[in-house]
Write a protein that binds this DNA or RNA. Sequence first.
DNA 1: ATAAAATGGATAGCATCACTTTCCACTATC
DNA 2: GATAGTGGAAAGTGATGCTATCCATTTTAT
Lengths: 209, 209
Amino acid sequence: MRIAELSRRTGVPIPTIKYYLREGLVPAGERTGPNQAQYGEAHVKRLKLARALVEVGGLSIASAREALRLMFSAGLSELDTIGKAQYAMTPAREYMEDEAWDEAVAEVDELIAKRGWRVKPANPARRTLADALATLRRLDQDDYFELLDSYAETAERLAADEIETVTRRGDVDSVAEAVVVWTAVGDTVLASLRRLAQEDKSTRLLEGS
Amino acid sequence: MRIAELSRRTGVPIPTIKYYLREGLVPAGERTGPNQAQYGEAHVKRLKLARALVEVGGLSIASAREALRLMFSAGLSELDTIGKAQYAMTPAREYMEDEAWDEAVAEVDELIAKRGWRVKPANPARRTLADALATLRRLDQDDYFELLDSYAETAERLAADEIETVTRRGDVDSVAEAVVVWTAVGDTVLASLRRLAQEDKSTRLLEGS
DNA sequence: ATAAAATGGATAGCATCACTTTCCACTATC
DNA sequence: GATAGTGGAAAGTGATGCTATCCATTTTAT
């Protein structure tokens, strides 16, 4: 298969495929001449995957490359991939380190301890969460405190279901792929469902009054 | 208060404040001379809000402006704000309309019907969700089907808690503000917690084997 | 056999976005 | 009266994610 068919099969324009090749999101095809190369099913899959991470998951090209790299790097245990892939998927941000920040960090630690979660200190989700909580505090949206437990409970149940489903797969590669896809696309699914449910609840409340 | 103090109080650089003023994220101050204006507490609050939507919520400047506009526009019922604000917060995307897309749209309709959710056809979360599901299908990640119910259940419970907490507030403005902030920042909180819970579950599974 | 189309690869260009910088006439403060 | 700060306009910047152009070389169609 050459580039035109790769484009047709995936819906990705040829110039974009060339760009992704340059950026290392998709490996080069097998060279058969000075200006000829062959692509296979693996390239189709990889390209679809890259597109999903970038378009639906909202990852940057750099993050997507890193996630894909980890996904296909041998030597990692299946579940180790989860951590690594997650870390790659969190974009770096700068945080405002004030009083609200310190309190938020403490709150996150407390929540993790209370739940008994085993989370490495390096997990970037800690900081992202702390940043979000600090922001809410700075806006005097302190009601979040009572909802936080509900959120955590929810997240825990979800994670249990997800891990269970994902590990039910056979081979390592398949698990790795599922983890990456689910982490990235799952956020969008969850956020959408939350919005739909919110509209429903608010509509009902509106009618009831 | 003049711009320097506004900057000090919020941590937002002066040029950025000027930019936000130009873009209409923050209303102009009260003019007291050809090159003098006064800002008040309302400006501080609005600026913090704008920053939160952009930085933590990841909204574009245009989306943030629209969300803020709706938030402070009179004449909307409290809960009507939820819908309007949500719509403003969903960025427009193009969708690949193939077979997987059609099936995904049908699936979303089915899910909404099954749950008995009352959701307007115009709600952009429908399309976002369909797009995500279509993507998973195109990647042959069909296991999502069995998890979808779990996700929906989760979203519903969350929404119930959120609406309840938010409407417990007194005035309309306060509700509107909470809705916008929670919609935007809540996504981040939820996503972070999900990642933390995932690491915990996978760590435990790894140790158990 | 030959003309037209496609290929891989390199390089440069482009549009968007979210700011920054620079400039200005003017005002406030030391 | 010097210095710093102000609001506002306009132009500039850096990052990002593509597109467009060009080229020598196949491949395909006629």
